[in-house]
């Protein structure tokens, strides 16, 4: 069960794993996530499904080696088993043909963006993708994105690759150059906040996929609640994608900090 069949470092801290999960591979759709747990004392962590292979019955996840549980996951090798793996969870992306899609991915958020880009391209859209990372070696999935996008713009904070600057700078230029029908933004909450502000300015409908704190992932705990359009929603069952122009990103940023102290204590203990 849940055997790791492939493991690959995409950058120093980002690992791609292919895990045997035939049922999930078959039923998952772009935008879905899974929850997994490493060891009997592990916590349940949500991770977006980056890709799946129905023939081999595997799914791919991409994880950044930060935090107690991600580190545990990254120490697993090919042949090891993930203790618990459940999914697919969350509402899938509403993939449809609209015209031109602007996809914005920041940091490890490029991973969950990938299956969505692929799906929109397969649905017959023109897809322009803007990727952003702190530096060249932290940029992931560039080749895969190029394969499924009509155009890719790369932005780095330090200018070590592509253009120097924030994702919004690259995105704004795309918006000014051609008519964009819809946007999707996935990445750190701050990035999504500014991406949403940008597309709101141009009145382009935009979805953002949130990475809230979760325990069960099935609507039971409410840890993942987020305010969207003035109403409280649960990321796990109402999301993870929401209308980016209605998300209260400041509240979300605040809520992501809920366990920062506890997490630090746990890391200190492990060292």
């Amino acid at each position: 069960m849940n055997r790791i069949v492939n493991k690959q470092y995409l950058s120093e801290n980002v690992v791609r794993m292919e895990i045997e999960a035939p049922l999930i591979a078959r039923s998952r759709k772009p935008g879905n996530f899974i929850i997994l747990r490493i060891g009997e004392k592990g916590e349940r962590i949500p991770l977006t499904i980056a890709d799946s292979d129905i023939t081999n019955g595997t799914i791919s996840i991409i994880v950044q080696n930060v935090g107690v549980s991600s580190k545990k996951l990254c120490t697993l090798e090919i042949g090891d088993e993930v203790t618990d793996l459940v999914g697919p969870l969350g509402k899938p992306t509403n993939v449809h043909k609209v015209g031109t899609i602007l996809a914005m991915g920041g940091g490890v958020g490029i991973a969950p963006l990938f299956p969505i880009v692929k799906a929109f391209k397969q649905a017959g859209n023109r897809v322009v993708t803007v990727l952003a990372a702190r530096s060249k070696d932290l940029l992931i999935l560039e080749d895969e994105m190029r394969e499924w996008s009509d155009e890719v713009v790369v932005m780095t904070d330090d200018g070590s690759y592509g253009e120097k600057g924030l994702i919004t700078a690259g995105a704004e230029r795309v918006i000014q150059n051609e008519k964009i029908d819809e946007c999707i933004a996935i990445g750190p909450a701050v990035m999504m906040k500014f991406a949403a502000m940008l597309t709101k300015k141009y009145e382009i409908p935009t979805q953002a996929s949130l990475n809230s704190i979760m325990v069960d992932g099935t609507g039971m705990c409410g840890a993942c609640r987020v305010t969207v359009g003035g109403k409280t929603k649960f990321t796990c069952i109402d999301g993870p994608e929401f209308n980016a122009h209605e998300i209260d990103f400041d509240e979300m940023l605040m809520r992501l900090q809920a366990y920062v102290k506890e997490e630090k204590d746990a890391q200190a203990e492990q060292q």
Partner: peptide, 9 residues
């Protein structure tokens, strides 16, 4: 139990 990873406030 501190030996478990899940935190609680």
């Amino acid at each position: 139990d501190d030996s478990y990873d899940t935190p609680v406030l």
